[in-house]
Amino acid sequence: MALKTYALDAVSVLVLEDNRFMRSILVNVIKGLGVTHVLEARDGNEALEELRNHPADIIVMDWELDGMPGSKFLQTVRSGKRGLNPLTPVIVVSANTIARNILQARDTGMTEFLAKPVSAASLYARIVSIIENPRRFVRTGSYFGPDRRRRFEAGYMGPKRRSEDRTLDDADDIDAVNRA
């Protein structure tokens, strides 16, 4: 299906990134895509404060953060405590594509993953995916976040993430391959 052009001027995005220049890159891309309301935060505490005062429609966050780890920030958002919206879509942006890093972000409740270096095309594609294919949320004893199974068709052939139907989903195996 052809990519649609969306007017994003009514959407608000919070960018959480500790590196000043990387934050500028992300903000410029997002504004270039037509988002006019972009909030910025340098660390998790600042981002939580921003979200409590100005809830964002989408969070774009780095994973390897100074101070509060990215995983702690995402857990706090998903907890929904103190006025946070636990259903907010979260795009994790990271240069660290080692499988265990991505799986940690997924298992903490990220919505989309975007590998750095970022391009406008790749970030736009993630935003369109959030608009067009919203994922239902799942609460289990140990997880709250978007359903980690992306497709629900009977013929789905992708990786199976649930413990009961997991076959080969071992992060260390993927890391060993990546290392070569």
Binding site: L3, K4, T5, Y6, A7, L8, A10, V11, G32, L33, G34, D57, I58, L87, P89, A120, A121, Y124, I130, I131, P134, R135, R136, F137, V138, R139, T140, P146, D147
Partner: peptide, 26 residues
């Protein structure tokens, strides 16, 4: 296991710009 439908409020905040190539935006 509890499933929660996503109300997707963003969908209501955006509109498709007909006839505009997304490549222009990118």
């Amino acid at each position: 296991v509890e499933f929660i439908d996503n109300p997707n409020p963003i969908r209501r905040k955006v509109r498709v710009e007909q006839g505009i190539d997304p490549q222009n935006l990118i």
